[in-house]
Simulated scan of single mutants.
Amino acid sequence: MIHLTLIIVDFLTGLLAAGAWALASAGGVIAVVVGGGFLGVSLFRRWRRKP
């Protein structure tokens, strides 16, 4: 019975770790996309100001 409990706890811990990693990587991708968008807009505005 103790072994089954350990297996379940290990499984749940693994799910939590995988979920946290997926959330962190998705957040990183979103941050890169948003940052790239802001960089592109600022460069476009700077380019448009030049005569």
Rank of each mutant, 00 (worst) to 15 (best):
T5W: 09
D10Q: 08
A22Y: 14
V41W: 11
L12V: 07
A20C: 05
S25V: 12
G37Y: 04
L15I: 07
V34T: 08
R48S: 04
A31D: 15
G28P: 00
R46N: 08
L43E: 10
G28Q: 10
V33D: 07
V34S: 07
V34C: 06
V34D: 14
V41E: 01
A20E: 03
G36L: 00
L6H: 08
G36K: 02
A22Q: 15
A17R: 13
A24R: 06
L15R: 03
R48A: 04
V33E: 11
H3A: 05
K50R: 12
V33C: 04
T13S: 13
M1N: 14
A18M: 13
L4D: 01
M1C: 12
R48M: 07
K50V: 06
I8T: 05
D10C: 10
A22V: 13
D10W: 04
V34H: 05
A26T: 15
G37Q: 02
F44P: 01
L4P: 01
G36E: 06
F38C: 04
G19D: 07
G36A: 06
I2H: 06
A22P: 00
L15V: 03
T5G: 01
L15C: 12
A17F: 08
G40V: 01
A18Q: 06
L12M: 12
S25F: 04
R48V: 00
V41S: 03
V32T: 10
M1A: 13
G14M: 03
G40H: 05
A31L: 10
K50F: 09
A26Y: 14
G40C: 06
L23A: 15
G36Q: 01
H3M: 06
P51Q: 05
G27R: 01
S25M: 11
W21E: 04
D10K: 08
M1Q: 13
G40D: 02
